[in-house]
Design a protein around this nucleic acid. Structure first.
Lengths: 191, 191
DNA sequence: TTACGATACGGAGGACCACCCCACTTCACA
DNA sequence: TGTGAAGTGGGGTGGTCCTCCGTATCGTAA
């Protein structure tokens, strides 16, 4: 889950694992405080670790983002008590939560966009969590006839991510835009 | 139109104007070839001009983008023979053109997003052109009863920009997502 | 046509960045 | 406890943006 190495590989050495954790912790703090554009040098400094160590553990900024947020994404994706709602509300509620998450955590939002948009293997884990959670909700809504049949999950996800990526000072506007777009999912809207 | 200085100010010196043009030309070529992230140093080099000259003319990358694309944005915004179409088709056609433009020219797309998203004064000119073209189309469609009354132009524009900003290898997907979202504009879709 | 002040120039340099190299340290296992 | 493999971090490289300031060029008034 939070294992930095593939299970196939031999386990990390204790000191290496320690440094890995220090880096992820430092990155989480700095991303939250200053956004995802923080210099990697700064992250390494803050973690009390050489920059080479950072680059060895995380070949790119995206890898670091994935490590920092993978857990949160999985938690966000969870479908809690959504099964109790009717199919439309369940889907919309989940999509709204997804959008809010992406919009709030700008850092992960941008990273998510990269995953959702390009199937970047770096984000396989986070991406899988999202698809696993959302796709059944969409299916259920379609089977209930409250969402148009031709909607594809990845289309919908990308739409939401795109809208979430819009930067606006007014959070109300975000909600308005999203609602507008989500109304397009209704079968009655079809031309 | 392409005047770099405000009319109030005294005209630029001939050599200054020459350099200004060289920079805009070089930037246009490089943006088209390599995207909007091209190094400004590179642009200056390509224009055969010192980097200080670039920074004097364009305090930020956004200023350079605005200078490069202002004309194209205005042309793209034009409503041509759209008045002949029925209100819905006119609006949708224009919005689609807008989205395609933003998506195709990634460089200006990102810059546009900045304008449309934050009212950055740097993009006042381009932004005004867009609003002047699009807002009447939306109004007309609303008056004809084919678009929900509560839709606000800036919401719609931001939605389209957000979707256009989604990077996907498949252009068909872009079209699908946009159509999905635009269907949300129909009054019949309202809850 | 000249001469001179305002204007604009560009290269050098500072501060920063990502990323790599490699002599050195630390670990884990026999 | 000794040894080789794994991991380290400081310093180097080459790139970025941006500013400073001595120099060159322009436009104009004489």
């Amino acid at each position: 889950m939070s294992t930095p190495t593939d299970p196939a590989q031999r386990p990390m050495r204790a000191d290496a694992r320690r440094n890995y954790e220090k880096l992820v912790t430092a990155a989480r703090e700095l991303f939250a405080k200053d956004g995802a554009a923080v210099s990697l040098e700064e992250v390494a400094r803050h973690a009390g670790v050489g920059s080479a160590t950072l680059h060895r553990n995380f070949p790119s900024r995206q890898h670091l983002l994935e490590a920092v947020y993978a857990g949160e994404v999985e938690e966000m994706s969870r479908v809690d008590g959504l099964e109790d709602l009717d199919p439309w509300d369940a889907l919309i509620t989940w999509l709204r939560r997804f959008a809010t998450f992406a919009a709030t955590k700008r850092a992960i939002g941008d990273a998510l966009a990269v995953y959702v948009e390009r199937d970047d293997p770096v984000f396989k884990r986070s991406g899988a969590a999202i698809t696993e959670a959302g796709e059944p909700l969409l299916k259920r809504a379609q089977e209930a006839g409250v969402v148009r049949d031709d909607a594809v999950f990845l289309d919908v996800a990308r739409m939401v991510v795109g809208i979430a990526a819009v930067r606006t000072a007014d959070p109300e506007q975000h909600a308005r835009i999203l609602d507008l777009a989500l109304d397009g999912l209704r079968p009655s809207a079809r031309g």
